[in-house]
Design a protein around this nucleic acid. Structure first.
Lengths: 347, 347
DNA sequence: CTGAAAGCGCTAACAC
DNA sequence: GTGTTAGCGCTTTCAG
């Protein structure tokens, strides 16, 4: 069997005894091509199973229509809904998405970013790994003129647009809700140090306590199911007095919930629990978990929109004198308190 | 600000007053380059922040080192673990992954496949959408000489390697397990018609009943949390006698579980329930859900390995006479019965 | 309305 | 060891 190559524009041109440029124009619906030849070209393209070579096109146009997304992990519901949100607006502009997971490893994040630079993505959307402390890889991307948009987990060290959740406010409301339910000994199971989102949620927790004149606070870093379970199990075994738990995410809250139940505590009567994120499992567990909902979809849409806006600004100001540099935006996604049985004492 | 372009090989060559080919060779560690010039080139590349243009390289080499993955949805734990498995072996060979979600829509699947063809991916891994009945898009990919590997959801209409779960066996064991627990009225909440995996699981269910001389069988298509909930709720409301439920996946089983509990049924005493897939939520719900575990990671590894094998065969037989065509493989991933409280009557 | 020619950045013969 | 040249497939001036 002959190793037939992919059909190219030149093949179509040869078959029709016309020039490649005419074919190229016809294929992209360019004006100035007679309907007659256009029809012929389209027919021949169909006949020969022509599939435009995006790689060649990208090289020629120095635009790949590819967006690179770097995030800690796609298995997390919040992140995958963000991706859906990005896709929702980006795909309408014919952009395609390439996703790279850092799994919270700095090295993987750097590799992914560098690969994206090499592949000349048109934009880079990133939620930084908890390990990340250096930002040289992002500086490189900026040197390569790739617009960056941060989402959820960001840094001040890089000038770029960002979309963040109002973590402080969400945490404040979550904690205040527990207080209104009568809780006085509220534990906060926190996210890793150094991440803005962890810090903001912890701050919201502390300030809600302060507002309500509660002196006692306990913050323990603990951000997954197992850690939530172990931490609360340990505390309860030590005889610690706990009547409320605010966890940095739902998985952790559910781990804590299990520890409470195993220790014979009634939820929410003995201990009221609230998570963060409104993961679908929150509705499935028993009792259903109260939580702070944050729209990942909306966040994704905002990310893509900010990118599009920046691109547009670049185009508009291209080849112009006294260019006003693009003003980076920060968009804040608001949260919503979702009260379910795990914290509802009907007070 | 001057719109500086990305550094190219030519820039390095010019700066060093040598030829681009020498630079190219040095950068790729090609032999036949003196250590001295090599060192100079590497230093200059570093200095100028050189990032190789993968797009140009791909065009030139007609190899993109990109793998296209089409799957129904990444939010499903099973699929995201498959992606991790693929990444595990593919990344060691320097391949990068592009993921497209079909969301079970035929149109989106076709679009994604065509985009992958246009982007000249080196391989296409696909788990077909439940809607998919036509396979022209995959024929196109084959015409473009892109090796295809199916995983989980496949078709016989396309000649290609595939990796599947032993769904029949898993379903058989799940059903037989319910029978050994004393169940006689077992409902099967099934997947959509026309999907091999649904059919095989239903077949396993039926044959287990037959083996144990149980005449009554009930198969209802119902494959997500809400449908599982509604179906069982409806059946119970009608007074249907049910003492066992085998669901096509864990979400559905959990929906069914909720309906049972709401109807006052004790699990597993009144109704024993088993799911399929061993989704992490299976451990979180109460009672913990029995299920059939299938290793997505292993499946992903197998997918990538079969691709690599096929590529190797192509290289080995290139430019040779009387070529033996590659023999497509089918790899079967075995399942494991995981007994938890939702079905364990301690019999 | 169509064609010729150049070039995006890289690599691989083929020279020397 | 290194340079010259051509070309991957496409688009885009510039001519006509």
């Amino acid at each position: 069997m002959i190793d037939e190559k992919q059909t190219t524009i030149k093949d179509i041109a040869d078959a029709l005894k016309i020039s490649p440029s005419t074919v190229s124009r016809a294929l992209r619906n360019h004006a100035d091509i007679s309907d007659d030849t256009k029809k012929k070209i389209l027919a021949k393209a169909e006949e020969l199973d022509y599939q435009p070579n995006i790689v060649a096109k990208s090289l020629r146009n120095s635009q790949t229509f590819t967006l690179g997304i770097v995030l800690p992990s796609v298995v997390h519901h919040f992140f995958s809904t963000i991706v859906s949100g990005i896709e929702d607006v980006a795909s309408k502009q014919k952009y395609r998405l390439v996703i790279a997971q850092s799994n919270e490893f700095f090295e993987k994040e750097v590799d992914s970013v560098e690969a994206f630079i090499g592949n000349r993505v048109d934009g880079l959307f990133i939620s930084i790994a908890s390990q990340t402390k250096s930002y040289k890889h992002l500086v490189k991307a900026q040197k390569s003129k790739i617009p960056i948009v941060f989402f959820d987990r960001e840094t001040d060290e890089i000038q770029a647009s960002k979309v963040i959740v109002d973590d402080y406010e969400g945490a404040f409301h979550a904690t205040e809700h527990l207080i209104t339910q009568g809780c006085k000994n509220i534990i906060h199971l926190a996210g890793p140090d150094g991440l803005h989102i962890s810090e903001n949620r912890s701050r919201g927790y502390l300030e809600a306590l302060t507002k309500h004149n509660i002196q006692k606070n306990t913050i323990i870093v603990s951000d997954n199911f197992d850690k939530g379970y172990e931490t609360i199990k340990g505390l309860l075994a030590k005889g610690e007095v706990i009547d409320g738990i605010f966890a940095v995410n739902d998985d952790t809250a559910i781990g804590a919930m299990r520890a409470c139940k195993q220790a014979g505590k009634i939820i929410p009567t003995d201990i009221a629990i609230i998570g963060f994120g409104d993961n679908p499992v929150a509705q499935i567990v028993e009792p259903p978990l109260s939580t702070i909902s944050q729209s990942g979809f909306e966040m994704g849409q905002a990310v893509a929109s900010l990118f599009l806006e920046q691109i547009k600004h670049q185009k508009d100001t291209k080849n112009k004198d006294n260019v006003i540099p693009y003003q980076f935006q920060t968009k804040i996604i608001t949260t919503k308190l979702v009260i379910r049985d795990s914290s509802n004492r009907n007070i």
